[in-house]
Design a protein around this nucleic acid. Structure first.
Lengths: 126, 126
DNA sequence: TCAAAGTGTTAGCCTATACTAACAATAATA
DNA sequence: TATTATTGTTAGTATAGGCTAACACTTTGA
């Protein structure tokens, strides 16, 4: 079945953690997301079954090609949306929280339109 | 408990239908949303229990004050977001679909920032 | 009048996704 | 080495919110 919103969130979290830590395991994901170990264990099993991540013998998680694609796409959306909201005057925390919700439901079409708009309306620091 | 995304969607639908029909009943909501009668029946029961709508002896649905507030807020978000996306070059259908998702998850803060931005950047027809 | 259509409800099922409790396996250390 | 801590899994629970099947009214109209 297609990846749900929560699946995207797990992949994005794994990406972010792997940019910060040498290795990523389920417990790191649980701590980062504020979820219980069993919830993450289950999610990891599903993501693995569907080919989005691999888990090696030591319990280290890695994104597969398709998993990484989704994680990066989601993360790009997050960064750009949050930046855009901040530029509109929204505080960082709210901007990030909203980006975190919207990144999963927005279409590629609309995201790209916002991206183009945001890039166009950048005010250079003269 | 707090109103969920689906509850907002029901209230918004009832508002839209009541602007279009003399009376609104569960079956109209079901047809409009593409849901089954039992799903709507259940949702109507919950919305009624929580004081967002009333149902009279003939099965006609009305928004209460709090229900109308939420419906109007949600609808306002929908309209403004969709317009904004369309102005950025997104086709109507996609813009509306995205607005429909985002309207439920965006914070008031971020919505107002987008609203202000959208109003500022209106290009008057000279 | 009596059958058919329209409307709503009840009962029970399904999926997604979180949770706790309890256990198992491994690693670290007194 | 024996205990404790860390990590992961299993089993079962809960909530939200769809669904179908089946039934009960009510209204309509031949």
């Amino acid at each position: 079945m297609a990846l749900q919103e929560s699946g995207e969130m797990y992949l994005e979290t794994i990406l972010i953690l792997s940019n910060r830590l040498a290795t990523v395991r389920a417990i790191d994901v649980a701590e980062q997301m504020g979820y219980s170990k069993p919830s993450v264990s289950r999610a990891v099993g599903l993501l693995k079954k569907d080919g989005y991540i691999t888990v090696d013998g030591d319990g280290f998680l890695s994104l597969t090609h398709s998993g990484r694609q989704i994680a990066e796409q989601t993360y790009e959306r997050h960064i750009l949306l949050a930046k855009f909201f901040i530029r509109l005057g929204v505080d960082e925390e709210t901007a990030s929280a909203d980006a975190c919700k919207i990144e999963h439901v927005i279409s590629q079409t609309t995201f790209e339109a916002i991206k183009k708009h945001a890039e166009q309306s950048i005010q250079p620091d003269v």
